[in-house]
């Protein structure tokens, strides 16, 4: 599993106010979707990639690797647009006659497919910019500032914190079962897995009780109130967001 969060912590853009990054990513995403032009999509992809890799210091190999994550869905989706079925071979660049019909790729289809392809990659790059420069904790802080109900944000925070502990516990138990031949055949395996899940649930329940006790000891009164590490005060990213998106919108309008 690629742990995006570890790269977000290492990013040089981490210290920037997460709200600004959030706004920048969302507006650019919006413009990319609205413009629906090859040039704009490519520009967004390039800008976001540039900012993540050059300004953030994320390794380029990782960025490219992540770009391949949506590829499987994307290729299938794009192929259905690129490939057409017609009664005659005219207009096709390449075509195959099958049972009186012609299946092939047309120029228009190719262009359409390409446009969609890069529109998706451009949009995805906006989200990658955000997640590769902003750790989960900072994103939660944004949600809090955007007045998302406290309960939801707190739950997300606790889930995120303890998912690692849960996985670790499960992993240790699995190893322990394995070393006592708990998975030697299918029946034993199912029985062991059942025991593991049940124990994990009980452990989680007990741990939540212990956590509550220790929160109480530090004056928990029903709300988890904390302060965040202060962020850089500059509004640099807002300015970048405005300049970049004005240019993009302007270019898109002239092209249309």
């Amino acid at each position: 599993m690629i742990n995006i969060d570890t790269y977000a912590y290492a990013s040089q853009l981490k210290t920037i106010d997460p709200l600004q990054k959030f706004v920048f990513a969302l507006i650019t995403l919006g413009v990319c979707l609205w413009a629906d032009t090859l040039v704009i999509s490519l520009a967004v992809l390039f800008i976001m990639g540039w900012m993540t890799i050059r300004s953030g210091g994320t390794p380029i190999s990782l960025f490219i690797k992540l770009m391949f994550v949506p590829m499987a869905f994307l290729v299938i989706g794009v192929l259905t647009i690129a490939i057409n079925v017609l009664g005659n071979p005219q207009g096709f660049i390449v075509s195959l006659p099958i049972a009186g019909f012609w299946i092939g790729v047309s120029k228009v289809g190719m262009y359409e497919a390409g446009r969609l392809f890069f529109r998706v990659l451009g949009s995805v790059s906006c989200l990658y910019f955000l997640s590769l420069s902003t750790p989960m904790v900072d994103l939660l802080a944004v949600l809090r500032r955007l007045r998302v109900p406290k309960l939801i944000v707190e739950m997300m925070g606790l889930v995120y914190r303890f998912i690692f502990t849960l996985l670790e516990t499960a992993d240790i138990m699995l190893t322990a079962q394995n070393s006592r031949l708990g998975y030697r055949d299918l029946t034993t395996g199912y029985r062991s897995l059942g025991a593991l899940v049940a124990t994990l649930f009980i452990r989680a329940y007990k741990r939540s009780n212990d956590l509550f006790t220790s929160l109480e000891a530090r004056g928990y009164d029903g709300d988890i109130n904390v302060f965040e590490v202060p962020f850089e005060k500059s509004r640099k990213i807002y300015i970048v967001a405005i300049v970049v998106n004005t240019i993009l919108v302007f270019v898109a309008l002239t092209l249309k």
């Binding site: 750790p135 904790v137 606790l158 741990r207 956590l211 220790s214 302060f227 965040e228």
Partner: peptide, 9 residues
């Protein structure tokens, strides 16, 4: 059991 937040600060 005591550290509830993913952020040390």
């Amino acid at each position: 059991n005591q550290l509830f937040s993913a952020s040390v600060y």
